[in-house]
Amino acid sequence: MANQYLHNVRGLFDTIAPNYDRMNNIISLGTHRHWRTQTMRQIQLAPTAHALDLCCGTGDWTIAIAQRLQVPGEVIGLDFSLPMLTYAEQKVRAAHVQDQVWLRHGNAMRLPFKPNTFDLVTIGFGLRNLPDKQRALAEIYRVLKPGGQLVCLETSQPDQALIKPVWQWYFTKVVPWFGRLFAHQYQEYSYLQETTRHFASYQQLADMFKTAGFQAVHYQRFNFGAAAAHFGTKPTGGVS
């Protein structure tokens, strides 16, 4: 069941890859870049760190990390969609950070890396699309070095009484319509708004971090709660 789900989601992202960046800008009204910039400001990253960007898509966050590194520091961008990685490779070369970036095709729930490998793992707008989110968090915990940090930037749900109905209307009605109007992909963007609406709340995601073993778990919310960045650290005495 999980394998079929993953296959279907991979097919969806393969399909939307050519329009992915443009649609992100349209749907978020350009604010997704601000969310990532604000999140990056909270990350302490040594220039020679080894980082992993999961569900890297077309590579925006991978590139942002690479721009803070210098050899031998590196960031691996991993995604299960080959078309997404093709666009990521083009953007990496255009940003002139290919010396710091490696792009890999893979499954975020079965990471092809040894334990205690990375100083930082990021995952942006990808966790909600994985069939077993807790397993993915456990895998991230495994490959992080003790003292390493996980940072997850994800869509979330506002909980203010005046904002929540507007947010629900926007995602249930407007987002699929944008998908039809700008990308001719109504079904695909109907699915994406459903994953957003049904994903864990920001409090539940913080609890999931703690269940996986992360400490110093905290979060920052954006746009009245439409998105949230969660942070967690693997304890220095953590079991691999």
Rank of each mutant, 00 (worst) to 15 (best):
N3F: 00
Y5N: 12
H7P: 03
V9E: 10
R10E: 15
R10Y: 06
G11Y: 08
F13C: 14
F13N: 12
F13G: 13
D14V: 08
I16P: 15
I16A: 15
I16H: 14
P18T: 08
Y20C: 07
D21P: 11
R22P: 08
M23K: 08
N25R: 07
I26S: 11
L29P: 08
G30L: 10
G30P: 10
H34C: 15
Q38L: 13
M40L: 13
R41M: 11
L45G: 11
A46K: 14
A46R: 13
A49H: 06
A51H: 05
L52D: 02
L54W: 11
C55D: 12
G57H: 09
G57V: 09
W61D: 15
W61G: 14
A64W: 05
I65A: 01
R68Q: 14
L69W: 00
V71C: 10
P72Y: 02
G73Q: 10
E74S: 04
E74R: 07
V75H: 13
I76R: 03
G77V: 05
F80S: 15
S81V: 06
L82Y: 11
P83H: 04
P83L: 08
Y87P: 01
Q90E: 09
K91R: 14
V92Q: 03
A94P: 07
V97A: 07
Q100T: 04
V101H: 01
H105D: 06
M109R: 13
M109F: 02
M109S: 15
P112C: 03
F113S: 06
N116H: 12
N116S: 07
F118Y: 10
T122K: 00
T122W: 00
I123M: 10
R128G: 07
N129S: 05
N129W: 03
L130M: 11
P131M: 09
Q134T: 13
L137K: 09
I140V: 11
V143F: 13
V143A: 12
L144G: 04
P146W: 04
G147K: 04
G148K: 02
G148V: 07
Q149E: 07
Q149Y: 03
L150W: 06
L150P: 11
V151Q: 00
L153H: 07
Q160Y: 02
Q160A: 01
P165I: 01
V166C: 11
W167F: 15
W169C: 15
Y170K: 14
T172I: 14
V174W: 13
W177Y: 13
R180E: 12
R180M: 03
R180W: 12
A183I: 08
Y186F: 14
Y186S: 12
Y189E: 10
Y191Q: 14
Q193L: 10
E194N: 14
E194S: 11
T195P: 02
T195H: 01
T196W: 00
R197G: 04
H198N: 10
Y202A: 03
A206D: 08
M208E: 02
F209S: 06
F209C: 08
F209H: 09
A212E: 01
G213F: 04
G213S: 05
F214N: 05
A216G: 05
Y219E: 01
Q220W: 00
Q220G: 01
R221M: 06
N223K: 01
F224D: 13
G225K: 01
G225Y: 00
A226F: 08
A226Q: 09
A228D: 09
A229G: 10
F231Y: 14
F231R: 09
T233I: 13
T233H: 00
K234Q: 04
T236Y: 07
T236L: 10
G238T: 05
V239H: 10
